[in-house]
Simulated assay, not measured.
Amino acid sequence: MSQLIEVLPLRMELGECPLWDHRHNRLYWVDIIRCTLFELDWLSRAMRIWPLPALGGGLALLGRDEILVAAQTGLFRFSPASGQYRYLLHPEMGMPTNRLNEGKADPAGNFWIGSMSTLGRRPEGSLYRISPAGEISRMLTGVHVPNALVFLPGDEAIFTDSHMKVIWRYHLGPHNGELGGRRVFADDTELASIPDGAVADSEGNIWNAKFGGGRIAVYQGQGRPAGELLLPATQVTSCAFCGPELDYLAVTTAKRLLDDEQRRAQAEAGNLFIFRPGATGLREPICRI
């Protein structure tokens, strides 16, 4: 049974993108709207905060103890030691009304990042794969809100367009990583909530945040419901296993799209929650860009 261990009372507008750095026992996450990057040192519980270059949208581990940060203005190499950003590239240069959202490294060291319009739920986004050599490949088009990107053993991945409310399972091609063999993993079209960020555990289960639903839903590997974790905030955005043994779960939440009355009623909306979920996670791959 999951147990709530700790709450960080941050009251973020749009907490997102939790990432565990197993090299230094640190947890990173962002507040997208307030353009803020957070770091929690797991052992000392010390927290550091830095401004983001622009609206945030994705994090990954890099070599040399750095972090890859995806923002509206492109991808950046960030050094926690110096607090400095170095611009790398932008997969959508010349599209200033889009922003980057939902980034993950795959086991081969590629970085995958989605994009979405900032002008409304328009099908103007894409999903990109960026190779270690910096080659940009557009994998999907016509995306409204990219989310729930998880790479699975056996050359598979899950991904959702939150606006469409269906989580898809894809086969990854062996040569260039093309997405094929799409099939439904979970259908949320009858729910009031939408599928948001997700993570896999060491047993192959998928933990998916339900934005507007106040919970993390757990699915077995083929998409069968296997439990849930309830939160005292409806706008649940993402989750990541963390801790030296990867046996904790960090869950980000938001105040985004809550009206004034709902914000008053949800005193813990926008906080970061840390649970003992009764499951363990997997180490995040190192991005080789």
Rank of each mutant, 00 (worst) to 15 (best):
M139N: 01
L140V: 11
L127Q: 04
M116Y: 02
E124S: 12
L119V: 10
L140W: 02
R122M: 13
G134R: 00
S126K: 10
E135A: 14
E124G: 10
T141P: 05
A133V: 07
R138H: 05
P132E: 11
E135M: 08
R129Y: 05
T141L: 09
E135Q: 14
R122V: 11
R121K: 14
G134S: 08
G134H: 02
V145D: 05
I136E: 04
V143D: 07
M139G: 01
M116F: 01
S131K: 03
P132W: 04
T141R: 12
G125M: 04
G120W: 08
I130P: 09
P123Y: 01
P123N: 11
M116L: 09
I130Y: 03
E135V: 14
G120K: 08
P132M: 09
T118G: 13
A133L: 13
R129H: 07
P132A: 07
L140C: 05
Y128K: 06
V143W: 00
V143Q: 03
Y128P: 10
R122Q: 15
R122P: 04
S117R: 02
R122S: 09
V145W: 00
L119C: 11
H144A: 05
G120V: 09
P132H: 08
P123M: 05
G142A: 07
G134P: 11
I136N: 02
L119W: 06
L119E: 15
V143P: 04
R122Y: 11
S117V: 05
E124K: 06
S126F: 07
G120T: 12
R122W: 04
S117M: 03
M116Q: 13
P123I: 06
M139Y: 07
R121G: 09
I136S: 01
A133D: 15
I136K: 00
G120A: 03
L119R: 14
V145P: 02
T118E: 15
G125A: 03
E124Q: 14
M139E: 12
M139C: 12
A133Y: 01
T118M: 15
S126V: 00
P123K: 04
S117T: 04
P123Q: 08
V143Y: 00
L119K: 14
E135H: 11
V143L: 04
P132S: 10
S137P: 02
R138Q: 15
I130R: 00
V145N: 04
G134T: 07
L119S: 13
